[in-house]
Amino acid sequence: PPRPSPKPGPGEHPLQFNYSLWFSRKSPGKHSTATSYDQNLKLVGTFASVEQFWKYYAHIVRPSDLTGHSDYHLFKEGIRPMWEDSANNKGGKWIVRLKKGLASRCWENLILAMLGEQFMVGEEICGAVISIRYQEDILSLWNRTASDQQTTSRIRDTLKRVLNLPPNTIMEYKTHNDSIKDNSSF
C-alpha cells in the first residue's frame, strides 16, 4: 500500500514538491527489460522539506563512490522513474556525459537546483538521474513535454549554468519515445 506523504516538520523549510529518491543497480548478465528495470528500482525515501532531504543525503553513498552499473533517481513524489509512467511518456531528457570524477559534484549541483525550483518551468520537471558506468557517468534531467521546445531550451540553459561545465560540453536531448523504440538504456 502507498505510504502517506511526508510533511515538513516544525521549523523545517518546505519544498515546492515532495520528492522520492530511488536507487537501482543492474544485475550483471541480465537483459535489461522494462520489467527487470522496474524490479531493480528501490525506493530510498520521500521527503517534503530541505532538512529531510539533507538527512537522506547524509546517509547515502556519494555517486562517485558507487561501483558497477548503478543509478540514483530523484523524482517528484508519485512519478516512477520509468519512461512508461504517465508523467513521463510524452517527455524526454537532457543528457550530459561526464568524465569520471565529476559525478558527485554535478549531481549535487543539479538536484539542489531542482529542489530549489531554479529551472522556472512550472510543473515541467519530472526528475533527475545520475548513472554510474564504467567509462563515464551520465546525468539526465527529465521533463514532461518533449514537444515543448521553448521549455526544453530553457531547461538546457539553466542546466548549463548550474552544472558550470566547460562550454564545449555536449548535451543531447532524447525523447522517451525514442528511448522506448531503440530500447537504449545506458
Binding site: G9, G11, E12, H13, P14, L15, Q16, V50, E51, W54, K55, A58, N109, L112, A113, L115, G116, E117, Q118, V162
Partner: peptide
C-alpha cells in the same frame, strides 16, 4: 500556488542547521 524558491547557498546553509543533525 506560491512558488518556493531556494538558491544553492541557502540550501547549503540549511544543511548545517541544528534541524538536520
Amino acid at each position: 500556488g506560491t512558488k518556493i524558491f531556494y538558491d544553492r547557498h541557502f540550501l547549503l546553509k540549511c544543511r548545517n542547521s541544528p534541524l538536520t543533525k
